[in-house]
Every structure is written in structure tokens, then in C-alpha cells.
Nucleic acid binder design. Structure first.
Lengths: 343, 343
DNA sequence: TGTTAGCACTCTACCTCGATGAGTGCTAAC
DNA sequence: GTTAGCACTCATCGAGGTAGAGTGCTAACA
């Protein structure tokens, strides 16, 4: 059996109607709502074929049909009209994007919020992976008596500061000297590459400031090698899930939200298998808790480098055309903002 | 009519049983479960009195009784046995607290997590209010060509860094000079106190670095006068609410979670009317969405100064004795950690 | 006067049962 | 190949009926 034009039309009608109403749809209703020029009986026959092909299924005998995962997949790949964002959505995004936003963190938070508002679904944003980064430069600044501010510039340009105990009071010159030695020895190395010999060299050059050096090394280890706290998933609009009729069951909500609480699986989910847009439908999902959900995700870049991803999670029954358009537009716009801003 | 010892015993029994089971309790059950030495009929009479006094109520005719808000209040104020934490809980807190935690933010996040885990309820933690802070000191450090790192030390000791455009390349000496002028003129002033005349002075002393100065002032304004983003409510264990039988209704969950999404009301709720421990029961709550909830909150201090608060939110039917013990212990422990660590 | 046993009554939760209606598959006619 | 008709299926919904827990009241008892 093959898909022909009429089957395609009927499948499209089923998917579109089910997306809109969340109710199983029967042959008679299709015949009434969509003007296909054939009777319900004919549609009935075609629907039997579509079921055999695996594109639609019955929740129970003598209920209407609903699209299967394969049906949605076929719809997304072959039937869907690519959608433009409407004027209002465009305007919202334009307006929001024109706000002055300084930090990457803010861009991320902002994007998530916007995404969930526009789609009425849950948004996921994966920040840039700090990962194991390498040492760029360090400065020491005076702070309280017995403490200094250590400013670390990583080689990727990120800047962090931390407060260190130094025991005794060190002069500005001494501090600068220590920083210079660090900078000379360590530039471009990740913390795991710092050999014992390197440390010995630093120690021997700086005999006096041992406590400062030890504390600084501890901190560097923590910063460069530590948990990648920035690479957290930012969730937005998780509540929107509650508005979906498929989650009127509390048990389902609970299992879903439980997954939301744990970042690791979400991180994995969003870490893109490939650049650009990805659509994962229902059971295609690796997380069994999401087997009733679909994920539309896309990567964003800074300076041509893919550094993170955003996604929208919703029930399998979602408005794919619209969500895909929004996610696509948002990642493009993010890439543009980040590239413009950070040169 | 007056409360006598027997009425108190019966009320305590009702509250304790309802806290444990979430089911209305009848006279016969009380007589069976609690050995009060009187028959169910007597208890029945006493319960009628307790109802008249407003301490208990019937959900519907010929159901058992449940405590009213006033009943819980009486229980908390007069009937409850103050509870010690058990060994296991003590150990958990000890163990968790001994972990090396550097930043205030981490302490806050950590506390929230622990609180919600120990109570199986939702935890709220209010961080320190940054508020409008005053200028302490500033440094400039070289960064990329045409950009510098501005490090701000506020007078309360908080350190932040930001990246500024400076247009042209400025030498280290120039940067230092600019910073010195700022430091001299502005130390101890809040941004709103920076008068036009002060700015003129700075300008006249530093004729060349106008762009840097403008950008720095913009940034200072944003940092010192800006939104108090740190004073965010940190929520933990919101999911725990779903396990409470009183929230098996999805509509209730939705309104509750909607409040969780908005920080402002929560902030107000937690901003303490008085130092130390606070118990707000059911309808005593100002937020109508929380009229079925109780909040146990307490303040914590750094160096004798109250800087924030933590709270536990649960259904009105909660284990007050235990939750109060936990919240009390946690804020004490927090105060100790913060004071120890920050000297 | 306080306590208790007994009893009629009330009300919810739960179950069953039948009606309803949407939808299907099959068959036969067009 | 298409359509009309028909018997059949199954979820949903409301009605009715029952069980059980609990109450208030009354009368007897110490």
C-alpha cells in the first residue's frame, strides 16, 4: 500500500484537527469539517489504510483516530506547511531583543522566558559549556586586611573573581609579582596539565607567599576543573504543561516534573546530535518519561562556534509548524545578538 | 465555656491524628486510638464544645472533625510538645554543613535543598538584600584590545566585575589613574548621591578618557542602583507539594505554582515582621492562594545583623513540631556558618 | 451532675446499570 | 471506486442504591 494524495490530505486533516482539539477524530467529522469531496465511508476506508500503515491509531475500539508518532513524523517531514511567524510574534521578539542585555546569562534567561511565553510550552535553554577551560590571566587586587581579590580571566574570555585568604598582608608589588609568575607559567594550560614541576618552579620563584599560592591553586582547580555550574539547563514555563489536557493526570505531571528537577538527563537530551534544528517526536525520545512529549531544539552560536542549544518541550500533540518557526527564529536571533554584542 | 484539660487532650488528639492521616476523625476513633479513659459519647459532647469554641470543624454533616485554623493556632501555641531533631536528621545537617561552602549563594541554595528534603515540603530562602549599596572601591584591569575589566568592590564587601568598552587602548597607568580619581571622589556614596558637580570634577580631572568614564558611570548606576537580583527567593522542593493529599486537585496545584513563579509576593511573605521564628497558619496568610497553607519562617544573621530569612511552606495540616524544630535549627546553623566563614 | 449506651438520622464514597452518542467495519448497491 | 445503511462497540454520564462512618439526642446510670 502506498500513500497517495488523498491519504496525505486525510492524514494532514487528522493531525491538524487533533493538534487543535486534543480529541480523537472520526471519519464523519473529517468529512464535515474538511471539504475533501468524498463521503465519510470513503474516508473510513482510507483511515483503515492509514492505520495499517501505522500513521494513526485508535485509543480504543470505536473511538476516533489519533496520529501515532510515525504519523506526526510523516506530518513534520512531508505534510506540514512551513510557517512564518505572525506580525505580533515578530514584534514581541523584536521588542524584547532590542532591550539592552549585557550578560550571556541574561540572554539565556531571557530567551527561555520568551520561548515559553510564545509557545505556551516548556522551554529548555542549555548555556555554554564552560567545560574544562584553560588559564588565561590572573590579577590580584587588595581587599580586606589579610585577603585579596583574585580575578581570573580564562582563555575563552570569561572573567571571574574570588576572595582569597593570604594570611599576612602583602604589598601591591608582591601581589603583582605573584600574578606575573602565574601568568607566565600557566597561560594556556588547563589545570590538569599543571605538572608538579611547574608548581615547583612557581614555589621556588616565590618563596615567601606560599599560603597565597596554595590558596590560589586551590581556587584555580575549583574554577577551571570544577563542576560546570554554568552549563545548567534553564527551564521556563514548566507550568504551561499543566494547561495541556494530556497532563490532567497528576501522576503524569509528577513524573514529568521529577525529570525537570534533575538537570543531567535534560542536559543530555538537549546536547545536540547535530547542528541546527532537531525534532524529536514521542517515543523517539530517549527519556521514557518524555515518551508522550516532543522536543523541538536548535543550537545557537557565538562567532561561528556552536556553544549551546535551546529547546521547547510539549506534548506530542503540539503545533509543530509554529513551534519550529519560533525556535528557529529565536536561535538565529540569539546567535545574532551574541555575535553582535561580543564582537 | 472554657478549655479544660480534657478538652485540650482531645484537641491535641484530633490535631495529631489529622496531621498524620489527613482524614477527618470521629469520636469513636479517638476513643479507640487514644486512651483517654472516657467513652466516645463523652468525647462526642466535648467535640461539640470544641466546635462551638471554633477549634475544630466538620467538612460536612456526619463526617469526622478536622482542626480549624484557630485549632492549629491553639495547638502550636499551647499544646504542642517542643520537639528535638532525631539523630538521623542531626547527622544529615551536621554532615551537610561540614561541606566546604564558599559563597553566600551556595549556602542559600544548599540550605533550601536541605530544608525541603528534611521536611518533604517546599522551602523558601530569601537571600540578603543587596538594596541600594554604596561605592567602595574600583579597579580597572586590561582585557581585550579596546576593553577593560572593571572590578567594583562595594562598601559592604561584595565584589563584581564587568567588561567595559573604552574605545581606544589605554595604558595601565591611565587606567589606574582613572580608578584612583573615581575612588577618591566616590567612596561611600550611593549612586543617587553622585551630584552633577562631582561628575564635573571627575571629567575635568580626566579630560581624555571620557568614553571610559561614561561607560563606567553607566555600569555603576546599573550595579549600585539596579534591580536587586540577588534578593531573589530560592524555592526548593516545590514538587513535594504534589505529594500532599490536599493538592490532589490539579486546579489547586496550578494556582499554587502560579504564585511560586512570581517572586514579589513570596518576597513580601518571607520578609519578616519580626526577628526569629514566625508561624503563619492558614487564613492568617496575606496571600489568598496560601489560605490552605502554613508558613514556618525564621531569620538568619551575619555578624549579628539580620540579612535574610528562610521558610517552609506546607499544607495547613503539617507537622508543626518537627518543622519548627528543623527551621529553627537550620537558621541557627546558617547564622553560625556565615558568621564563622565571613569573620 | 457528669457519663454512657443506644438509636435514628445524615451524608459521602462507591458501585452498578442503563441510556446516549460517537465511531467503526462490513456489506450491498450504485 | 464510492457510497449508504446497518449492526456493533465502547466511553461517558447520570440515576439509583448501598455501606460505612459519624453525629445528635434521649434516657438510663453512678
Amino acid at each position: 500500500m502506498q500513500m497517495d494524495e488523498r491519504k496525505r490530505k486525510i492524514l494532514r486533516a487528522i493531525v491538524q484537527d487533533y493538534i487543535a482539539t486534543a480529541e480523537p477524530i472520526g471519519s464523519r467529522t473529517i468529512a464535515r469539517k474538511f471539504d475533501l469531496g468524498v463521503s465519510s465511508a470513503t474516508i473510513r476506508n482510507e483511515m483503515a489504510d492509514l492505520e495499517e500503515l501505522g500513521f494513526i491509531e485508535q485509543p480504543y475500539t470505536s473511538a476516533g483516530r489519533i496520529p501515532s508518532d510515525a504519523g506526526y513524523r510523516y506530518f513534520v517531514d512531508c505534510l506540514m506547511d512551513p510557517q512564518e511567524l505572525n506580525a505580533e510574534e515578530m514584534e514581541i521578539i523584536e521588542r524584547e531583543s532590542s532591550k539592552r542585555i549585557n550578560e550571556l546569562q541574561e540572554v539565556i534567561a531571557h530567551t527561555g522566558k520568551l520561548l515559553s511565553e510564545l509557545t505556551n510550552l516548556t522551554s529548555l535553554v542549555l548555556g555554554p559549556h564552560k567545560g574544562k577551560s584553560t588559564f588565561g590571566k590572573m590579577h590580584f587586587l587588595p581587599y580586606q586586611p589579610g585577603q585579596v581579590i583574585m580575578v581570573i580571566v580564562k582563555e575563552n574570555g570569561a572573567v571571574e573573581n574570588h576572595i582569597l585568604d593570604v594570611g599576612e598582608n602583602l604589598s601591591a608589588e608582591e601581589l603583582q609579582h605573584v600574578a606575573e609568575v602565574f601568568n607566565q607559567k600557566m597561560r594556556g594550560y588547563s589545570i590538569s596539565q599543571v605538572k608538579r614541576s611547574m608548581l615547583h618552579e612557581i614555589y621556588s620563584e616565590l618563596s615567601r607567599q606560599r599560603l597565597l599560592i596554595d590558596n590560589a591553586m586551590d581556587m584555580l582547580r575549583a574554577i577551571l576543573d570544577g563542576k560546570e555550574e554554568d552549563e545548567r539547563i534553564h527551564l521556563g514555563g514548566t507550568l504551561n504543561m499543566l494547561n495541556q489536557p494530556e497532563f490532567k493526570d497528576l501522576a503524569k505531571v509528577k513524573t514529568l516534573f521529577k525529570v525537570f528537577e534533575d538537570n543531567e538527563p535534560l542536559k543530555k537530551l538537549l546536547t545536540p546530535r547535530q547542528e541546527g534544528l532537531n525534532v524529536t517526536i514521542g517515543g523517539e525520545n530517549t527519556l521514557k518519561e518524555f515518551r508522550d512529549c516532543s522536543l523541538i531544539s536548535a543550537t545557537y552560536k557565538v562567532n561561528g562556534l556552536t556553544i549551546g542549544a535551546v529547546g521547547v518541550l510539549g506534548p506530542t500533540r503540539m503545533d509543530y509548524a509554529k513551534v519550529i518557526a519560533i525556535v528557529d527564529f529565536m536561535t538565529r536571533s540569539m546567535t545574532e545578538i551574541l555575535t553582535r554584542h561580543r564582537r
